[in-house]
């Protein structure tokens, strides 16, 4: 390989790595920048294992298909679903219906989130784990144990239903 070819190949490979790194957060950045804001009530998962390493594990009403609508067909693992939500009391958003295709012509004040069936955990929207810094781990863990009913998350949802977790709030304190 000539030095010129090596130089070109090296910079092409470096560019490839940079492009891959840019693509990693692209979807989330798009949702955070252009999405609509939704606030969801956090529900207890397993009070003894909120913290998993540097993540807090979260669950929501929209994760349980049986709590969104009744008489739904059985969902297979990995199946994509679309959950319509509307803004309810206290600014918290609640589920309205579940669809197997992206819903069209939703009334004002409603939007949909794209999720995927994931085993016993129900439907995952990619917002079930929140990264927590080491110094705040204990504080968040204790706050969740004490006031999980006062925990909510702020999620940004883009036009395609992709959700990006923005922040976690427990009893008025934002993390």
């Amino acid at each position: 390989m000539t030095p010129e070819t090596l130089r070109k190949a090296f910079f092409a490979a470096l560019l490839l790595q940079l492009v891959i790194l840019l693509l990693v957060p692209l979807q989330h950045a798009r949702s955070l920048l252009t999405g609509r804001q939704v606030e969801l009530q956090v529900e207890p998962v397993d009070p003894y294992s909120f913290m998993k390493g540097y993540y807090v594990t979260l669950s929501y009403r929209i994760c349980r298909p049986e709590r969104i609508a009744s008489g739904l067909p059985d969902l297979y693992d990995g199946q994509t679903v679309y959950t319509v939500v509307r803004e309810g009391a206290n600014g918290l958003w609640v589920p309205v219906s579940l669809h197997l295709e992206p819903p069209a012509d939703l009334p004002a004040g409603q939007l949909f989130l794209k999720g995927r069936k994931k085993g016993w955990r129900g439907i995952s929207y990619g917002i079930e784990e929140y990264s927590i810094s080491e110094s705040k781990r204990r504080e968040v863990d204790q706050a969740l144990r004490k006031s999980v009913d006062k925990a909510r998350v702020r999620v940004m949802v883009d036009a395609d239903g992709n959700a990006a977790l923005d922040s976690l709030e427990i009893d008025g304190v934002r993390y």
Binding site: A13, I20, L23, S131
Partner: peptide, 23 residues
């Protein structure tokens, strides 16, 4: 971690493999 992206670890490994193979 910075963007709270939750996903399958193997997909991250795939992206890592692609960039590393190119280099």
């Amino acid at each position: 971690q910075i963007f709270n992206i939750q996903g399958d670890t193997y997909r991250g490994a795939g992206a890592w493999a692609l960039g590393t193979l190119g280099m």
